[in-house]
Amino acid sequence: MIEPKLISYLFMAVAGALSLIATYLAVIEKDLVKAVIYSAIQSTAYTILFYLLMAPDIALVYIPVAVGLYPAVVFFLIKKTERFEESG
C-alpha cells in the first residue's frame, strides 16, 4: 500500500527536478523571451513546492508575483530594449 506521505514527497522531488531543468534552460537560453517563459515554469514548480511544504500563504503571494507580474514586467522591458543576448 502506497502511503500519502510517499506521494507527497515524490511530488516534491519531481517539482525540484522540473525547477532544475527550467533554471538551466532559462540561464543558457539566448532568446530572452524564451528565458522568461522558462523562468515562469521554474516559478510554477516552486509554487507546487511551497504548497507541499505547507506554506499556503507563500503559494498565494507567489502565484501572482512570479507567474503574473514578474514575466509581464520583463516582457515590457524586452519590448523596449533588445530581445537577444549576444554570445559571451
Binding site: M12, G16, S19, T23, L32, E86
Partner: peptide, 28 residues
C-alpha cells in the same frame, strides 16, 4: 526524496549565481 529536492534547489542556487555573474545581458 526530500534530500533530493533540497539538492535540486541548491543546484538552482549555483546555476542562477552563474547566470548573475557570467552572462553579459543585464536582462538575463
Amino acid at each position: 526524496l526530500f534530500v533530493f529536492m533540497l539538492s535540486t534547489i541548491m543546484l538552482n542556487l549555483v546555476i542562477s549565481l552563474y547566470g548573475v555573474f557570467a552572462r553579459p545581458s543585464l536582462i538575463k
